[in-house]
């Protein structure tokens, strides 16, 4: 999902944990207790969370770029105001998540440095371009829809600060999906040209949306441990299926078709069956060879570098104010 690159090995020395502490930790997890920042936790649990929450935070922040692209070109003031609010929400979500990661002993500056250096991953979905206004509809409907599918179970994840951040995010995410679907609905009820635009966007976003859930369970190396620690509550494939089942009827209501000739409803299981996903594309995009990887990172670096003077000035101003207040206090004494 927003943290789909969990297959890579986590760097750092192997830590041999005290079996008694490990057992007590697992017992707390099994009893559905939340783990809080100062509680004892296995090093691997901490590292998994830092990486997962970090990737999630980076995805929110990079996710502002494809949509930001359309703020100045939104077709009406209503759409523009909504898109602006949505992009601002994504920035807020990034902040909640960085704050949650920081409770694990990593600083936001460190995490951000990893993103800008290209060392940390973010969701593959944001490396696709937003070519038309219908792409904004598709992102809200599909990308935020997929995100909600993944994030609702994360509201019950075992690490307290992460779970609390997810609760806030889920409350806000629902507006994102609805505004996207409304854009699609308006296009589909419009002229033939507008409907074609909606169809074209669905054709391009459908498969990348399914890839958001990450590699198939058979290739997902950390799923089992993450499920045992209740960081994850459902596997990648389970969430992907839930998403397809929820989304296909919505697309059919729009009068659109899905770019999958094998898509069919399975009467016996009640699930929508879909064709094979091109995992080589997923790996390529995640490894940096997607259509917009370079552009996205360049935009983040530019924003970071060009904002440096603002951060420096704010700190210098705060230091000056503190010094002035100190001098006044001393003078008054």
């Amino acid at each position: 999902m927003y943290s789909q690159a969990l297959n890579e090995r986590i760097e750092g020395p192997r830590v041999v944990e005290d079996p008694a502490k490990l057992a007590a930790f697992q017992a707390r997890i099994d009893a559905e207790e939340r783990i809080e920042p100062n509680d004892w936790m296995p090093e691997a649990y901490r590292r998994t969370l830092v990486r997962q929450i970090g990737q999630h935070a980076h995805s929110e922040v990079v996710g502002m770029l494809p949509e930001g692209n359309w703020i100045t070109r939104a077709p009406s003031l209503r759409r523009k105001a909504a898109l602006l609010a949505k992009v601002q929400d994504e920035g807020g979500h990034g902040l909640y998540l960085y704050a949650a990661a920081e409770t694990l002993g990593v600083s936001r500056e460190e995490l951000y440095e990893q993103l800008l250096a290209g060392k940390a991953k973010y969701s593959s979905i944001f490396n696709y371009p937003t070519l038309t206004w219908a792409d904004i509809g598709c992102i809200g409907w599909l990308v935020d829809g997929a995100a909600i599918m993944n994030q609702i179970p994360l509201c019950r994840t075992s690490y307290g600060p992460y779970a609390r951040a997810m609760i806030r995010i889920c409350k806000e995410e629902s507006f994102h999906q609805r505004q996207g679907y409304e854009i699609m609905l308006t296009l589909c009820r419009g002229t033939a040209e507008q409907k074609a635009m909606a169809q074209d966007a669905l054709n391009r976003w459908w498969w990348p949306s399914l890839m958001m859930f990450g590699p198939p369970d058979s290739e997902s190396q950390h799923t089992e441990q993450s499920m045992r620690w209740k960081i994850k509550r459902f596997t990648n494939d389970e969430l992907r299926q839930k998403f397809v089942d929820a989304t296909v009827p919505q697309g059919l209501y729009l009068g659109l078709t899905f770019p999958d000739p094998e898509l069919r409803f399975d009467e016996t299981t009640g699930h929508w069956r879909f064709g094979p996903i091109d995992w080589s594309e997923f790996k390529r995009v995640l490894a940096g060879q997607g259509p917009c990887n370079r552009e996205r990172l360049a935009a983040r670096r530019k924003a970071h570098e060009e904002g440096a003077w603002v951060r420096e000035a704010a700190l210098a101003h705060a230091a000056k104010k503190r010094a002035r207040e100190r001098a006044q206090r001393i003078a008054a004494e």
Partner: peptide, 23 residues
Amino acid sequence: VGSVHAADAEMALQAARDTYTRR
């Protein structure tokens, strides 16, 4: 409700408003 980074108290209040009270 959470935390924010800011250079001073005044900016922390503004960041907290933007981050935690958008609705």
